[in-house]
Each structure stands twice: as C-alpha cells, then as structure tokens.
Nucleic acid binder design. Structure first.
Lengths: 230, 230
DNA sequence: AACAGTTAGATTGTTGACAATAGACATGTG
DNA sequence: CACATGTCTATTGTCAACAATCTAACTGTT
C-alpha cells in the first residue's frame, strides 16, 4: 500500500533531501534581501548555519545559479545577483513576450475548471483589495500569472518562466515593489481572463503585455529611488 | 570596470574544473546518442569512465538538468531526456518566439562589424553548399543563429536560448536531422540578414519564424520515421 | 611612499567512505 | 498460483578530510 510518493519540487515539505531544504532556505534569504544583492556567499558558513555539510549546500547553489539568483565563478565563489535597471528591463522584456505567448496558448487549451478557478481567484483578489490585505494581493497576483502559464500546456514555457525567470522576478518584486495601483491591476486581470474565456488569445496576449509593462514601470521607478538613496 | 570575464562554460579549454570536463563529455555523449535517449544514467560508472569521483560528475548532472538533457528524480537517479514529437513541437514553438524576438532586438542593436561577420558567414555557407560540405553546413547554421542571438544584446534571452533550450535542440537536430533543403535554408538566412541590415526587425522576425518552422517540419518528419522503425 | 614578490590564511574543488533509500530477489502464507 | 513480507544489493544522498586555488597581508627593494 504505497501511496503518495512525493514527486519533484516539494520544496515546502520536510521529507525532501537536504539539498532541497538548503535551496528553499537560501533562496528565501536572497529574495527577502537577508543575503544582500551583490554580496558574497560562503559555502561553509551556509552549511554550518543549516546544520549540514557543504555537499548539499553546493547542490543548492547550482540550482540557484540556474534560477539566476546567484552568479558563480570557478575557484572564486558565488555572489548574490545584483539588481540593476538594465537587467530589470531586460528581464521584463523577455517576460512580456513569454507571458504573451502563454496567454495565446492558454486561450487555446484552458478548460472550464481552470477558468472557474481563475474567476474564483479574481473574486478573492477583490475581497483582498476591499480589505486592504496587501499580502494576499501580492500572493494573488503571483497565483494569477502562474495559473495562466500552467494553462498554456507548454512544458518548456513553464520551465522557462516558473523554473527560471520567475525566481529572479520575485526578488525584484519583493525588494522593489509596493502595489500602487491595485484597482487598475485587478481590472487588467479581469479583462485578461475574459479574453481567455472568449478564446481570444491575441487580445489576451496584448492585454497581458500591457499589464506587465505597467508592472515594469512601477518596479523601475522604485528601484531607481532605492539605488539613488544608497 | 572589469571587462570580458568569461564565467562558466569554458567547455572547450582544458584548464577548466573537472565538473566542466565531465559536463562537456557527458553532454556530447547524450547529444550524439551514445547515451541513448531515455536510458538510465549511473553516476559511479560515469565517474569511473572519466577517471574522477562522483562529486564533479553529480555537478555536471545538475547542469545537464538545467539544460534539459536529463531528468533527475530524488533517490532514483537521472535519465537521458526522451525525444518525442510533442516535445519537439513544444520546443520549436518556444524557440520560434524567442528567436523572432532576437531578430527584432538584433535589428535595433547590431553594429557594422557584426553585420560584416554575418555576411562573411553567408559566403562561407555558400562555399560549403557548393562543395557539398554537410558538416560545415550544420556548423554554419548553428553559428548563424548564435550570432543573431548575441546581437540582440539581451542577456536573459541569450541565457534562455543558448544556455538552456539550444542544448536540447542540438540533440534533436543531431539525431533527427539531415539537411534536406540547404539552398532554401541559405536563401532564408540571406533574407534575414538583409532585413536586419535594413533595421527592419519586424520582417526579420517574421522570416526567422518561418525559417524555424521549416526546420521543425523537417525534424518532425525524420523523428516520426525514426520512431516508427523502432 | 610605491611597487613587486613572497608567504600565510581562507575558500573552493575534489576525494573516498559511510548512511539512507529504491528496486530486485527470495521466502513464506493463503 | 497469487500475493504479501522480508532480506539483499545496487544506487543515490551525505559527510568529513585533503588538495588546489585565490585573496590579502607582509616584506624588502628602489
């Protein structure tokens, strides 16, 4: 009666390997800024901090390199990625194209259940907006984009966005974003879902790209002030 | 102002770390099919084969996972990626969008020197075509796409395509492609370069996407016959 | 004081051994 | 014979020590 084997990427559960635990812990530290952007990473110190040896720690660092959250150079070591305006723009330009593509595919492939979940999410977001719950606004926003990407049914698109770009994106958003147009953003979301529901992938893609461009401007502005104050 | 520091992927030189050597060796074996698609990978056997311990070998496997050439599952191990028609289509769909984007950016940012190199490459390809040198036709094709991606000036686009997707793509192409329309392909390349030279990114993108679609059809056909014969 | 070369310390790369888990085989029971 | 249970082995996960390399301080010379 063997049931429920944990599959890949169960980073929240504790049954995972040490490398997975280290990955989750270090990644969280980086995204929150506890490990400052640009600072050096010491393998041994991290290993001791999490009560493990350097092996699993190194493995976690390899994965963090794939997620673009650190930069490794042979014999020298790893540094936390830096947040720059140039890279922010580069990142968002790519994200915009990819999520536009996700919208077109989602409009082709999404099913009724997923659509219902998306609309339920919109309702929750409205409630969070009314209640001033900024935490859920952020979480809900992430969730919204995730679901559309999932609905694209494209494995490589998912891997590229969720497995790759999104981690660095979260770092920018965590450190440089305050939601400043929640009503507008929510309206954007609603129109995107409508377009997908009507199987109008072209429109959904256009709306999504515009929506992301708004987010880029917002984040860019805040990053500029942050960097100026230093 | 530290300029020109190559980080990882020095795979051709021998001064690299053992992990890099293992990476290059294993990757070549996979792409050539010496390690068959779908077959299991044994860390210890690989380590012995290359005369090193399991540490660097594991590190190489981590990177190969990032490059989508293997699939790892905890406590079970790694398998070489499978080649399926569905994934081929998925892969090419993403590639098409990304290289279209690369063309638009390249049309904005390419400089005269890079343009001259591209046209020199076209000449070489013509010579290879005339001489029936199929090896250089393949190499030249890869080089053509690389240069355009480089000219896009987008770090994340380069990382996603060259650091990620292209490795798996090479596996498909190595195992499933014989060049069957070299004259047509070369004409495509020439028109794309012309469009980029004229700073017409939209046209270049369109031509590139069509060109890639041709390649997809070609590879799909050959993969289908290969799989049928087994 | 400025600079090159040298040396000591710290950090990463690598190794071989040990522990934990999965898969195969064998055994016993109905 | 089917099936559950329990070993047994092969493979992966983890560890602690060693080697190679980088960094920074120090020395001596001009």
């Amino acid at each position: 009666m063997n049931l429920s084997k944990h599959q890949t990427s169960h980073p929240t559960k504790s049954g995972a390997t040490l490398a997975d635990k280290a990955l989750l812990a270090i990644q969280t530290s980086i995204i929150k800024g506890e490990l400052a952007a640009g600072s050096k990473i010491n393998e041994q110190a991290l290993a001791e901090q999490y009560g493990m040896s350097r092996g699993p720690t190194r493995e976690a660092l390899l994965t963090l390199e794939r997620r673009r959250l650190i930069v490794r150079t042979p014999h020298i070591g790893a540094r936390v990625a830096e947040l720059t305006i140039e890279e922010l723009n580069d990142l968002y330009r790519l994200r915009s194209v990819l999520e536009g593509m996700a919208c077109e595919l989602a409009a082709q492939h999404i099913n009724q259940e997923e659509l219902a979940q998306l609309e339920a999410l919109l309702v929750k977001q409205e409630q969070a907006l009314a209640a001033g719950d900024t935490f859920f606004q952020k979480e809900g926003d992430v969730d919204f984009h995730y679901r559309i990407i999932q609905a694209s049914r494209s494995k490589h698109l998912q891997e590229t966005l969720i497995g790759g770009l999104y981690h660095l994106l979260r770092m920018y958003r965590y450190q440089c974003t305050n939601i400043n147009r929640p009503t507008k953003a929510l309206a954007d979301h609603r129109r995107i879902v409508e377009a997908i529901a009507q199987r109008d992938g072209e429109l959904a893609s256009l709306l999504m790209r515009r929506h992301i461009e708004q987010g880029r401007k917002n984040t860019e502005k805040r990053l500029a002030t942050l960097q100026q104050s230093q």
